[in-house]
Design a binder for these strands. Sequence first.
DNA 1: CCGAGCGCGTGACACCTGTCATGCCGATCG
DNA 2: CGATCGGCATGACAGGTGTCACGCGCTCGG
Lengths: 201, 201
Amino acid sequence: MIRVLLADDEHLIRGAVAALLGLEADLEVVAEVGRGDEVAAAVARHDPDVAVLDIEMPGLDGLTAAEELNASGARCAVCILTSFGRPGYLRRAMAAGVRGFVAKDAPTQELAAAIRKIHGGGRYLDAELAAGAMAAGDNPLTEREREILRLTGTGTETARVAALLHLSEGTVRNYLSAAMAKLGESNRVGAFQTAREMGWI
Amino acid sequence: MIRVLLADDEHLIRGAVAALLGLEADLEVVAEVGRGDEVAAAVARHDPDVAVLDIEMPGLDGLTAAEELNASGARCAVCILTSFGRPGYLRRAMAAGVRGFVAKDAPTQELAAAIRKIHGGGRYLDAELAAGAMAAGDNPLTEREREILRLTGTGTETARVAALLHLSEGTVRNYLSAAMAKLGESNRVGAFQTAREMGWI
DNA sequence: CCGAGCGCGTGACACCTGTCATGCCGATCG
DNA sequence: CGATCGGCATGACAGGTGTCACGCGCTCGG
């Protein structure tokens, strides 16, 4: 019996996935959490064999939670289950020691297959996503660029961003310009969108 | 036995929701589709009692599909199941004759409860979402404003937007200015984000 | 009927943005 | 060690952006 922990902020979906896994004779969902920052405690308490983590979650995102588990030397294998097969996500997941990466639009049986595979010590990657990640290459943005892109991407005015980061307005514009050049976009809106699309923010 | 049609573009999630509903003795999933433009044909063929539609789908979004069903006088009741409880979505759904609206982060049992309720001729609305929709009020944007906001929101340069719509650049900027005023934002990025947040685009 | 209101469309002006040249500092490497 | 490269930071300039006043046509309600 493979003991599974499920982390996803959408309660109904979490229950649905639990129902799906419940149909498998060799899988048992032993814990469910709805926030990233509850993952570590739940793993400690229930000692699952496999943790299935969504990425977009309140508190702490699934990738950071996976990094945390890895750093603390947790025994359980981690499988990411996400809507967004963004290249940057896959990279970060691999770097965090994640062994499985499944998209929410993968075939129905794929999650159970991934869980079995990684529980056996193997890895499970969606071929499409892996190819996409290879093609996209590494994240070219620096930390400052990401930070400024994040802020301006939510509609924050340049002046406010500058104030928040204790920078001159010109400097903020310059980071945006650098990000735009790296991303091949001609304005901040496009730069933000493609950076997000790539999972680089 | 209530016959249910399921429409969601995320294959694995669709299967999971089907598994969830399969646990209910009085519900039967008779058809699944992954695209909005396949909903009408599937309804015609399988004659379900209730159609559960996601909003974000390729081909045709769930709200438009619901409008289509309503216009064609289909017998089946429609329940929207979505990640995003945006006020504008709920409004459009109500206008389309949708009788149920459930968020993907609602409690696990809520979907089955909603299906039973609307199959019995009632309505089922998430109280939180309904309150939010009331508070937000109507969509203040005109069609032109929405169109231009959509385009600039994906990074398209003003000049290109103007060319696409056969307008002067000044006119494009003016529509954006109007949208910004209506949304209480001071730049196009913020305007796009809040318009999307509200489900007004 | 006819003014009021609204959506559409435009150009001119002030201001914000994107670009460029420049400098500083720490890390890497022959 | 000195050279080189990459990240951080800034100001000046040109061009794009947000605002405003204005005009056109349509649709209501008085």
